[in-house]
Design a binder for these strands. Sequence first.
DNA 1: AACGGTACCGGCAACGTTACCGGTTTTCCC
DNA 2: GGGAAAACCGGTAACGTTGCCGGTACCGTT
Lengths: 340, 340
Amino acid sequence: MTKPPTIKDIARQLNISVSTVSRAIRNASDVNPETKKAVLALVEELNYQPNQLALSLRNKQTHTIGVIVPNLDYVLSMMVRGIDEVALEAGYTVMICQSNESFGREILNTRRLLESLVDGFIISVSSETKTFEHFKKIQEKEIPMVVFDRVTPQLKAPSVHIDNVGGGFQATEHLIEQGYKRIAILAGPKNLDISNKRLEGYLNALKKHHVKVDNDLIVHCDFSQDYAFFAAEELLAMKKRPDAIFTISDRMAIGAMLAIKKKGLEMPHDIGLVGFNDEPILSLVSPTISSVEQPSFELGKITAKLFIEAMHNPEETTPVEKILKTKLYVRESSQRILPK
Amino acid sequence: MTKPPTIKDIARQLNISVSTVSRAIRNASDVNPETKKAVLALVEELNYQPNQLALSLRNKQTHTIGVIVPNLDYVLSMMVRGIDEVALEAGYTVMICQSNESFGREILNTRRLLESLVDGFIISVSSETKTFEHFKKIQEKEIPMVVFDRVTPQLKAPSVHIDNVGGGFQATEHLIEQGYKRIAILAGPKNLDISNKRLEGYLNALKKHHVKVDNDLIVHCDFSQDYAFFAAEELLAMKKRPDAIFTISDRMAIGAMLAIKKKGLEMPHDIGLVGFNDEPILSLVSPTISSVEQPSFELGKITAKLFIEAMHNPEETTPVEKILKTKLYVRESSQRILPK
DNA sequence: AACGGTACCGGCAACGTTACCGGTTTTCCC
DNA sequence: GGGAAAACCGGTAACGTTGCCGGTACCGTT
C-alpha cells in the first residue's frame, strides 16, 4: 500500500517549501517559471492528485450533492439521470439515496448525507412523509436545498415540478370530450401534494364541463399496482359503476387495466382509461393506454441547474418555483371518437 | 450561518482540553465519569456532530462506496437497492454513478470517485467498455473492488453474477423441448461477457440435443428495443426463417415481439419467444412472454456483503466468484405443449 | 548611495480530529 | 510512610492543504 504522494513529497524532493509547491500547482503568480515547471514535471511523474478530503476540510465544501428519492422507478431514474448530467458537468458528484418510500429511511438518509457534509440537497419526498422536521434541519444549517417532482407547500424551498393540476385537467377533460359520463379517479395518498394537485385538475375539468362530482368515484390508494387493482375492482363492482378511470400513475393504470379485463369490460367502448407518466409499457399492452407525459429527463436537468443557481446566490429571498408543462398522449384505451 | 460546534467549543466551555473531550465522546477509558457526563450533556445541548471530513482525513477512510452502473433500468435499480440496503446497514454511504453505457463517462466516473476517496468500488461495466485500464488504476492503489452483474474475465476481482451460461441453456433447452427446430438468438455486443455466456448456454443446449448450429441464426446487436426490432425483422425475412427466438434481454424480447406481430406471426404457434430478466412487463403484454429470471435484489445484497468482506480481509489471494442460479418462467410466448 | 518596487520564497497557522506520550494526583498495599 | 500502580488530564504532532504575512534578493530610479 504505497501511500499517494502529497505536496510535501514534492517539496522535499525539490528542496522547496510546500507553500511554493501549492502556489505552483494552481496559482501561477508569485512563483518562478522554472520552479513551476519543475513542480509540474514532478506532479506528472508522481501522478500527484490533490487530496480532496483535505481541500474540503479547509474550504468547507465537498462538491457533493445529496439526492434523496423515494425510489428509482422509470420516471425518477430519468430525472436522476438529468440531475446527474448537469451536476457532473458543473463539477459536482452526486450521492443518490433511496428512501424506499419510507419515512424512517428518509430521515436516516438525510442524517447520513448531512454527516457527509454534502454541499446541498435535491429532494423528492417519500409518500409516507407527513412531517418535515428532518428537512427543516437542513434549512437551519442554511444548506442549499431544492425539491423536485414530489414537492409540498409545507417546505419553503425552490422547487421544480410539472403542472400537476394541468395534467389532471388534460386527462379528465379528454375523457369528458370522449363522451364518458361517470369518470372515476384513482388518486394517491392524501398527504401527497402531487396526488392532490392532479385531483384538483380532475375537479376543475368536471366543473368546467358542469359534471357533478360524485365522491364515491374519488378513491385514494397507494401507488402500487396491486392496490390499484383492488381499488379498481371495487369501483367496477358498484351499482352505478364508472365508465372511465383516470389513474394518477401508470403503475396504477396497469392495475386498473387488469381489473377491467378481469371484469370482462372492453376499452374504450365500455370504459375509458387514462394514466399518468407515459411509461413506454403503455404502448405495448393491449389496448394501448392513454397517459399524461411529463418531461422527466428535462425536469431533472432543470432541477440541477436551479440548484446550482441557488448555490451561488445563497441569499435568494423568494424561493423560485418552476413548473413544466405536461402533454397528453391519447391511445386506444380512451379514444372512442376517432379524430377526423 | 452559525458554524457547527466543534470539539474545541466544548473544551473551551468546560475548561478542559480537547483531548479529554475527544476521549469522553467515544473512548470511555481514562476519563472521569463526572467529566464525561458534563461533556455528553454539552454535546447534547449544542447538538454536536463530529466532522466526518476531519475524521476521514485522519483515519484515511471515508465510509463511502462508489457504485458505477451502466444505467438504472429495472434489473440494475433492483440490484442497486440491494447494495444500498446492506451498505447502509453496515454504516457505509453509497455514491451511485451512471455511465450511461458510455466508456468515456465510465472513466470520468471512476476518476471522480477516486478523487472523492471512496473506500471501495462496486462496478458493473458499460457495454462500450473494451479496455480496463481505468479500473486497473483502482487495483494499483489497492482499493477494494467488486464487480457484479456485468463481469468480465479481464478484470481480476471478486465478482457476483448469475449463471449466464445456465440461463441461456435453460431458455434454449426449453424451446427445443417445445419442439422448435430453428432457434435463433439475439445476443448483445460481442465484448460483453454477459452476452457471450448466454450465447454459450444456447450453444450448449443445441449441442446436447444434437441440433446443428446455424450461424445465420446468431445475431449480435445492442441492448435497445429498436435494434432488436430491426434485427428480428431481418431474421424473419430469411428464406428459412427461425421458428423461435431467444433474446438475451427483455427489452430485446419486446423488440422481437413487435417484429413478430408486424409480420403477422402467432406466438407460440408459428414462433416461440423467450427473454431474459423477467421484468414485470412480460406478464402484461399479449401474449405473455417467457423469460429467465435473475434474483436482482438478492444479487445486490450479496454483492455488498462480499464487498464488505473484501474490505475487512484486504489480502485475499484468490478473488471469490459467486454465481447465482437463474429460473425460467414459462409463459404463453413459448408454450406449445401444455403441461399435463 | 539610498530608496522603492517587484519577484520569489518559506514559515506559521488553521480546518477538526485523535494517537501518543508524559505529567500530576489519588489510591492502595505492605 | 514509602513506593507503585491506577486514574485522570493536557500538550503536541499529525492527516494534506492553503492563506497570510514577512523576508530576501535583485532591479531600476534619482
